[in-house]
C-alpha cells in the first residue's frame, strides 16, 4: 500500500522530527530553573561540572524534560485517537472537556485530602473517562461526522461547567486551593520523576492497546459499516479508544495539569505530513507531541525569566490560531 518512495519520505520526516526533538530536549536541559547557565549545563552533559550544576541539570531539568516528553506523547496521541474515532478534526481532549473532567476529579481528590501521587493518577483518569463519555454522550457521538463544530460546542459548555465547579471548590478550602491553583493552570514546572513513574504503567497499557487497535481504527475512518464489513468490531474499537484517551489524558493531566491544544495542533500537523492514515500519523504524533510541549516549555521559562509563564498559556497561544484556521476553512477537512 505504501510505495517505497513514500516510505522513504516518511522515514525522512521521522528522522528530521527526531533530530528536532533531540535539540529541543537539549535546549530544555541548558536553560531553565536554577542559576546555572548554558555553559555550566553543557559541562555537566559532557560528563564533568560542579555539584550544583549537576543537580540542577540532571535532577530538576532532566526530570522536567522527561515529564515533558511523556506528557507531549500522551496528549498528541490522545488527540489523534479522539479525532479519528469521532471523525472530527476538532476533537481535542482539552477542548472536549476530557482534561477538565480530569482536573475536576483531581480537585475533588485534593480537597478530600489525598496527596498520594498514584491515587491522583487514577482519579484523574477516572475523571477523564467520565468527561469523555459525558461530552460524547451529550453530542451524540455517532452522527457527528458531519458537524464537527457541534462536538466542540458541547465540549466547550462542559469545560466551562467543570472549570466553574472547580473554582467553586476552591472557595471551600484555602489550603487545598493553593495546591490546586498551582496545578490547574497546566505546567511542567517543579514536576518530579516520581510523578512520571506513577503514570508510566498506565501510559504503557495505553500504548499496547493503541498498537492493537490502530488497524481497525484506520478502517473506521472509512465508515462504521465498511469497517464492520472488513471484519472489525466498531463498537469495541470505539470503547477501547475512549479508554486509551482517558488513560493518556488522565495521566498527562495528573502530572502536568490540563494543557489544551496540544491534542489539536499535533495531529493536525501529523496529518499534513503523513496523510490521513492514522497508522502513519500516530508515529509522527509521538514525536510532534513532545516537540511542541518541550519547545513551549522552554519558551515559557525564557520569555519572562526569571519567573515563568504557565505552559498551558503558551500552548493555548500557539493552538488557538490553528483552531481558528481550521474552523475558518470553507469546508472542514473530513476524517
Amino acid at each position: 500500500m505504501i510505495a517505497s518512495a513514500e516510505r522513504r519520505r516518511l522515514a525522512g520526516q521521522g528522522l528530521t522530527l527526531a533530530g528536532l526533538l533531540l535539540l529541543a530536549c537539549l535546549a530544555s536541559l541548558l536553560w531553565g530553573a536554577g542559576d546555572v547557565g548554558a555553559e555550566r549545563a553543557l559541562a555537566v552533559l559532557a560528563g564533568h561540572g560542579d555539584e550544583e550544576a549537576r543537580f540542577v541539570v540532571g535532577t530538576l531539568r532532566g526530570s522536567r524534560t522527561l515529564v515533558g516528553l511523556a506528557v507531549g506523547m500522551a496528549l498528541g496521541v490522545a488527540g489523534a485517537l479522539l479525532q479519528a474515532v469521532s471523525r472530527n478534526p476538532l476533537a481535542e481532549p482539552g477542548l472536549l472537556g476530557v482534561s477538565a473532567g480530569a482536573a475536576f476529579a483531581v480537585a475533588i481528590a485534593l480537597l478530600l485530602g489525598t496527596s498520594a501521587a498514584t491515587l491522583r493518577v487514577g482519579v484523574a483518569q477516572l475523571g477523564a473517562l467520565l468527561g469523555c463519555l459525558c461530552v460524547l454522550g451529550v453530542a451524540r457521538f455517532r452522527g457527528l461526522g458531519n458537524d464537527p463544530v457541534r462536538l466542540v460546542l458541547a465540549g466547550a459548555a462542559f469545560t466551562g461547567l467543570l472549570s466553574a465547579l472547580t473554582t467553586l471548590l476552591l472557595l471551600f478550602d484555602q489550603r487545598a486551593a493553593d495546591e490546586i491553583r498551582f496545578w490547574v493552570v497546566g505546567s511542567l514546572s517543579g514536576r518530579r520523576l516520581e510523578d512520571l513513574l506513577a503514570v508510566l504503567p498506565s501510559l504503557a497499557v495505553a500504548a499496547a492497546i493503541t498498537l492493537v487497535i490502530a488497524r481497525p481504527l484506520a478502517a473506521l475512518a472509512l465508515g462504521e459499516r465498511l469497517a464492520a464489513g472488513l471484519g472489525h468490531h466498531p463498537g469495541r474499537v470505539r470503547l477501547l479508544v475512549i479508554l486509551v484517551v482517558a488513560l493518556l489524558v488522565g495521566g498527562a493531566t495528573a502530572i502536568a495539569g490540563p494543557i489544551a491544544f496540544v491534542g489539536l495542533v499535533v495531529p493536525f500537523a501529523a496529518r499534513a505530513l503523513a496523510g490521513p492514515d492514522i497508522r502513519r500519523s500516530l508515529w509522527l504524533c509521538l514525536l510532534l507531541g513532545p516537540l511542541m510541549v518541550i519547545i513551549a516549555d522552554v519558551i515559557s521559562r525564557r520569555l519572562v525569566a526569571p519567573s515563568e509563564l504557565p505552559l498551558g498559556v503558551l500552548t493555548a497561544l500557539c493552538g488557538a490560531p490553528v483552531l481558528i484556521a481550521v474552523v475558518r476553512r470553507r469546508r472542514l477537512p473530513m476524517l
Binding site: R87, L226, G229, P276, M334
Partner: peptide
C-alpha cells in the same frame, strides 16, 4: 460489502 455511505478521509 460496499455500504452506501462510504466516505474516505481527505487525501487518501
Amino acid at each position: 460489502l460496499l455500504p452506501q455511505e462510504a466516505r474516505a478521509p481527505e487525501g487518501l
